[in-house]
Write a protein that binds this DNA or RNA. Structure first.
Lengths: 221, 221, 221, 221
DNA sequence: TATGAATGAGTTTTCATTCAT
DNA sequence: GATGAATGAAAACTCATTCAT
């Protein structure tokens, strides 16, 4: 049989390569035109193959979107893993994530990330049929929460802010906002990332304010 | 002539009422399914009228979306006006905006807000034809920047963080994240808003950290 | 009761006037855009009345077209009558008809005439439901045939050409061809009419050629 | 590869065959109901294929109409070529054209011909976008004019009738008149053609009448 | 009587999916 | 396997007709 390095048959490697190309084209087009706006024709054309061939790899457009999201989540999780597993302080880890998110914006991680969470139609369709997808998504979230808890334990982060809230704050700052492009253009992403992460850590630093919020006005000195 | 309170003819009032109903239905459906995902049939059906009737009010689906966005921006600007024009400190104003955004999430302000900035296809179409729309949008942003500058001048906010960055941070925290719904469900929005605003103001408080970021690692003690 | 000259009530006269306006607008638009291309909205708008009002005069778009055609045919028949009843030779009568057709092209007779015979959709619809219309149309044709027969009897026209053929030839030369506009523009209609009618009468003049056509080549000297 | 006579792949031949079928169905329906009156549904149904399939061959209804017209003009021009290039007298050539026009009426040449010049909406749309179409049309007209000029030079046709006028007369007699169908039914087309051409040539024969028309009554002996 | 908002069937066009080659 | 023609179910939009005011 025709094999190659790693014992993987040529055919299978070609297959995987094509699948990657399809996923990349789909990702680009979903980002450019949205889920509904990108047609299977467009995707096939961008890859340079026949439309029917796409169906040899993905049973439906929806499956393609799901695969794309799974890939995005997996990549994101992997990037988190690499960073979170490193030998740094929780703060340094989160800073690295910020930097990565802002700087790698143009490759794929953050892009797919955008596609995932900005397209309500995909989200709804996912919810309808693929709840397991959200399980996958919860995993990196769990890891992030762990890092936040570590930081609290180490006295770096304010223990009075519930971890889910911290996570919300972190994620809110993580995703780039399409509508602010002009501003972003005026500043190198790395610098923006530094501003954002400094702001974040100052905001969640321990001490310096009143006990947990109550119904009363919470912002008194 | 058949008139009524305010001297507005019945026909005209009915017309406006129906237009409101169409806009509301469209808003809901755009949020639920996205711009492409929501069909004119769906919208008409939700209002309980014939499809053709929608076209008596809006010349095209795109026009409907534009009207919706304009309404959203106008409402948002108005809400900002009311708050920013009040007799409060910059911080208190921004806190009020946070609260409003998180609590009013279910009426329309924040919802339309979401629709606007999460749908790439709408954004693109807007850019193509309705650049003026973005002018309208820039106005509230300008006012927000003013409030931030006031806060800096008053010594409340860190003058070393550029105002555009502050604005980016503020907006990033303002919009609710659809994908975190589950978490939000676990906490009353008002409380979430308090956490978020406390975090924000602590993060932008003056002093307490190193000078402006450089290319060197910025997060060392 | 409010009456007026002729004892016709004011209301009725207004009604007829409006009907005339509707017919004129419909005629213009049918000519400009064809039967299907002109909408009832367009017609009402051109008259300056509400769409519903058109339906107070004509039960349907088709009825409007029928009325228009009937009016056109009636006018054409009337014009023929006036000319054919005059005290002229058959040839002079037909010449007058040519002149009228080419010169009056811009008012209404010939225009409606065009609309009638150039729009297959109207014709089909007419045939489907209003065969009586064709009865009306046959009347002027009969009169024309009479004039041709008179000419034959008077020795002016070739008796060997069957009258229906002559009629066919006459009508074929009568209607202006929309696609030749450019050429027509280069010559005053009256002159064109003279050329056409001279050609016609020379072509149907008696004598000078072989007996009735046979299957053999008919153009031998 | 699967080929066949002429080396043309099967796929391509099937494709062309289907295209021919679509064009034929469209032609029939445009003639029957006019451009607007014939729907894409109708056309697809008559061919016996799905509506979407029509769009694989023609990008829009308008493109279909354009293709139809181009085909008609091309066929007409080709038929003229064949006849005009033959070794006959100008008169014999024009006679052949008459015969062809009247007898081939049911195949397509003359039919499409009708469709072209009787539908105002198609004409307008053509003018808007496809002026080149009219260039194609002008070519056969030029050739016809040449034949007429030859006839004049040979002393067969009256040199005092301007060629454009002769062309106008010829074309007016060439196109069959839909509204006269009943009459046409009563006589074999070949015979009708002979009558028409005899009439035509007698009408344009040289000599036998007064000089060029003036403003004065032109029909005096 | 005149209006014009409302209707809903119909039109053109698109596109995910299938399947014969 | 790969192809791309074929399908048919929508989708956006139009318009003749009706009817409450």
């Amino acid at each position: 049989m025709t094999v190659s390095a790693g014992g993987v048959p040529l055919r299978e490697r070609q297959r995987q390569e094509r699948e990657r190309l399809i996923l990349r084209a789909a990702e680009e087009l979903f980002i450019e035109r949205g889920y509904q706006g990108a047609s299977m024709d467009d995707i096939a054309a961008r890859v340079g193959i026949a439309k029917g061939t796409v169906y040899l790899h993905f049973a439906s457009k929806e499956d393609l979107a799901v695969a794309l999201i799974e890939q995005g989540v997996r990549r994101f999780a992997q990037a988190l893993d690499t960073i979170l597993a490193s030998d740094r302080t929780p703060r340094a880890k989160l800073e690295a994530i910020f930097e990565r998110a802002y700087c790698a914006m143009d490759e794929g991680i953050s892009q797919t990330f955008s596609t995932i969470f900005r397209s309500p139609e995909i989200i709804e369709r996912m919810r309808e049929r693929h709840d397991d997808m959200f399980a996958v998504w919860r995993e990196p979230m769990r890891r992030l929460s762990e890092a936040l808890d570590e930081g609290k334990a180490a006295g770096e982060f304010d223990p009075e802010i519930p971890t889910p809230i911290m996570l919300h704050l972190f994620m809110g700052l993580l995703a780039p906002h399409r509508w602010e492009r002009p501003m972003e253009g005026a500043m190198p992403p790395a610098e923006l990332a530094r501003y954002v992460s400094r702001f974040f850590f100052k905001g969640i630093a321990p001490g310096g304010h009143a006990p947990p919020p109550t119904v009363a006005e919470p912002s008194q000195p």
